[in-house]
Nucleic acid binder design. Structure first.
Lengths: 343, 343
DNA sequence: CTTAGCACTCTACAATAAAGAGTGCTAATA
DNA sequence: TATTAGCACTCTTTATTGTAGAGTGCTAAG
């Protein structure tokens, strides 16, 4: 549907438009990219491409700009060939490698890094590698009827919350509670046993039936509410970009980044697929981000599933963004390999 | 040094300038605030105030704008009298009250809330109520030579990190390690015992001397690196504000918010003093924020020290900001009282 | 000491003009 | 038939000019 001749023009326009941000005229294409054709010929081809909705003009006597359709063609072409990590960022990658000790900190750092290197917004998410299986449960008495619930999930994800129970309990009683919960829950999927837990726990602690019930409820709320941790970084980088000069739009995007579930939706949209995933403009699941593009990829690090990505303008430097993202991803994945045994 | 007559003019100019953002002329002051004086009189007084550096003109034939010195006088006047929480925000406060279960989540929510209600940037910090005293130490084996270090501090602060030790260790050996560490460290200040710990620990675990050393080093790094957790929220609100139309400046501010130590410096600057603390423009310890104002206050919630505040333009609505901050602070503090016993 | 009047200054805004870039169309060319 | 050169036309961008409005400083009178 798109002849070789036309494709060359589209790729040239997208490439140049990404670099300059200005509408591209036929003269520029003829001089810089397709020297075997004259400006007039390219003008004709551009008129064709406009009809096919790959290009458009902001006004009658301006150059052409790419439509999302053109970006898609361009990105597909990039993905087909090999990429190399930009060497000027090697230093940062080494810094990231240092931080891998603490997975959460590493991912936070990675998002900020992505933001800094690319000037777009870095995002990340960290979830359990597997379904929620408890590996350890502790209840620690913090004060009068205040208890710290501590859950260690298989894969190393940790949740904790300080709660107030109906009445006070000694640490001994709490230990008994955690022993009982552990007995049933450890090593098994939470969804599988959450129902059967209560009766077994209350058997030995009937004096504290109320407390047991409310503790189990809290555990349930922790385990169901927080399956993922989200990170964003480098949102400030985007302020200088001419594509985000519409402050209102930028504002809604930044507001969305603060809500966890909108990032969650992005992550879910991409993490289903394996490997790299580029979403351009209106392909985006989140309506308010329809004029952004997203590059995302997932891996496993420290025994947990990690998704990292970039949010930028549709006029994003896809080639560079993808290379950088791949570099970061590989670095994060490096220590994921060492403890395969975990799963 | 500032006569009653002059003070009235200053307060009127600041009040009106905060509302409108435009330079204030003598006519406006005479009509709206000081009806007993004519515009010409006020013009003379304004000329005096300009010499005293309370007011300045952006250009010869414009109205006057307040200098930081004038804001200081204005804020001091506000702080002297009683404030009332804006009733239209009661609903949000109720939402915040719901979230108090989890202190960290509550503080995160509080910063976003502050941002939303005031249209400025909410910041928060959560630290240990006391010095670092360990209440519980666990080492959990996650995989081959990978160990999860879990530290519960007195007051409920939790730190954890997954680390790779020099060689593998059984869970039993790790339990022995945590028993030994607990024996010495629990209930005592970390600074006090960090030195004596190593020899006692290695006594029983000499086979794993390397592991013990590296585990203790990690503990030390955790405890010294992360004394505070930081939160920011609602940075996007500030995008619409005319005072932040200089994108470059806004960008540096948002970049600073991503670095933990710059927030740390702000917090430290304010948390020393008890109660409310208003920092105007160049009073600010962070150089790049010299044209911002900061309102901060600290309290104790859930047995931990919490600092919450607002970063906004120098032309901030101080009265409203302070009221809202006080409301949020009181709500957070409510459950701080219930477990006094913790400290 | 306060006030009214008036000339002066500076900004903000709109209207106009000129320059520049790029197109579409037509006619000539290979 | 496909490609190219030439040219008139369109639209944006930038600079310039003129005008209205707001506010001041100064002077002289109350």
């Amino acid at each position: 549907m798109l002849s070789e001749r036309h494709l060359e023009v589209v790729l040239a326009v997208v490439y140049e438009y990404i670099k300059t941000g200005e509408p591209i005229g036929s003269r520029t294409i003829a001089r810089k990219f397709l020297k075997d054709r004259s400006a007039a010929t390219i003008r004709n081809e551009m008129a064709d491409l406009e009809e096919m909705e790959y290009l458009y003009q902001p006004h009658t006597s301006a150059g052409r700009m790419p439509t999302p359709k053109a970006y898609r063609v361009y990105v597909d072409a990039i993905l087909r060939r090999q990429r190399t990590f930009p060497s000027e960022s090697e230093g940062w990658i080494r810094e990231l490698r240092e931080k891998r000790k603490d997975v959460e900190e590493a991912l936070g750092y990675a998002t900020r890094l992505l933001g800094k290197i690319t000037s777009y917004i870095g995002v990340g998410a960290l979830g359990p590698a597997t379904e929620t299986v408890l590996q350890r449960v502790e209840f620690l008495r913090m004060g009068h009827s205040t208890v710290l619930i501590l859950l260690v999930l298989k894969g190393g994800l940790i949740h904790h919350r300080t709660v107030t129970l109906p009445c006070d309990m000694t640490q001994e009683a709490l230990d008994e509670l955690s022993r009982r919960v552990s007995m049933i829950a450890l090593g098994r999927s939470w969804g599988e046993i959450r129902g059967t837990l209560q009766s077994y726990v209350e058997e030995a602690l009937e004096r504290y039936a109320d407390n047991c019930r409310s503790a189990l409820l809290e555990m349930d709320s922790i385990l169901s509410e927080k399956p993922f941790q989200f990170f964003t970084g480098g949102a400030h980088n985007v302020l200088g970009l001419p594509d985000f000069n519409d402050l209102g739009r930028l504002q809604t995007i930044m507001a969305l980044l603060e809500e966890e579930d909108s990032i969650g939706r992005l992550v879910r949209g991409c993490s289903a697929e394996k490997g790299l995933c580029v979403t351009i403009g209106d392909e985006n699941p989140v309506l308010q981000m329809r004029d952004c593009s997203i590059v995302m990829a997932s891996t496993v690090t420290g025994g947990r599933k990690a998704v990292v990505g970039l949010i930028g303008p549709v006029r994003m430097d896809y080639e560079r963004s993808i290379s950088v993202l791949e570099g970061v991803l590989d670095t994060l994945a490096e220590n994921g390999e060492s403890d395969e045994e975990v799963r």
